[in-house]
């Protein structure tokens, strides 16, 4: 039977499905995200110094031992860094009660980020880290990753999952994230670790090609460089808006 004959007897109407009722949220509601205004204080310069220090200590000879030994040092550093972030964040706002919980926030963030090192470790394995050998190295890398990429975010967002998701998931994420240097340093850390994989296959047989040195270095350097991006963007914006009237930032 030809469908052409069948056609006139029926009309087919298509109901609108549920997905069409996409809510066009008016972008009038400006999402409020924490944004520190004293970036220089909270630039993660310590990451850059830390990795240089590790290299001086002999990271290339014994990555596992050195990373293990310096973990406590790094945790202490991150405690103080977290404190700096809380200062930077609360400075701008009126003094609210969050200041009282500062210690609690830092402690909780540290605990959560230490816990999150396990999922990060699994992520690293899933992304292709060696499955049988080098497990401890991978786990240490996961710890450092979690401490230096997740921990500052937790502090800045006061461990609020919803805000964090909205921060990265909103329609304007690219702009919002690129203005926040703490977030950019975390993104930079992730990207840097990703890029840190690249020198691994080279057949140069260098010490620094040992797992996971390149990834850690990439991450540490990435976090520092990433945090500089908002600064540059800021300068660029100021520079381009100079001729006209000063725009609000």
């Amino acid at each position: 039977m030809s469908p052409n004959i069948k056609a006139p007897s029926k009309t087919v109407s298509f109901l609108h499905d549920g997905s069409t009722e996409v809510v066009n949220i008016e972008d009038k509601v400006v999402l409020k995200f924490p944004n520190s205004n004293i970036p220089l204080l909270t630039l993660p310069i310590h990451n850059a110094f830390f990795i240089v220090g590790l290299f001086l200590y002999g990271l290339q000879q014994d990555p596992k031992g050195i990373l293990r030994k310096n973990l406590v040092t790094y945790i202490v550093i991150q405690f103080s860094y977290g404190y700096l972030i809380t200062i930077a964040c609360s400075n701008k706002k009126k003094k609210d009660r969050s200041e009282d919980n500062r210690g609690l926030l830092i402690g909780a963030s540290m605990a959560i980020s230490l816990l999150l090192s396990l999922p990060v470790f699994i992520t690293l394995i899933l992304l292709g880290a060696p499955l049988i050998e080098y497990l401890e190295e991978t786990y240490l890398l996961g710890l450092y990753l979690s401490l230096s990429a997740i921990y500052p975010l937790l502090i800045q967002f006061k461990c609020n999952y919803e805000t964090l998701v909205n921060f990265f998931g909103n329609g304007n994420a690219l702009q919002v994230v690129s203005q926040n240097h703490v977030a950019m340093s975390s993104v930079g850390y992730a990207v840097g670790t990703w890029i840190g994989v690249i020198p691994l296959p080279l057949d140069w047989d260098r010490d620094w090609q040992k797992w996971p040195i390149t990834l850690l270095t990439g991450g540490m350097a990435g976090s520092f460089l990433g945090s500089l991006i908002p600064l540059f963007l800021d300068c660029y914006r100021k520079f381009t808006s100079k001729p006209g009237s000063k725009k609000e930032l």
Partner: peptide, 18 residues
């Protein structure tokens, strides 16, 4: 249920009983 909102279904109604 003609007002089915499930996206993978659509109704075909006869012309006569539309």
């Amino acid at each position: 249920n003609v007002d089915n909102t499930s996206e993978s279904k659509s109704s075909v109604t006869d012309n006569n009983s539309s």
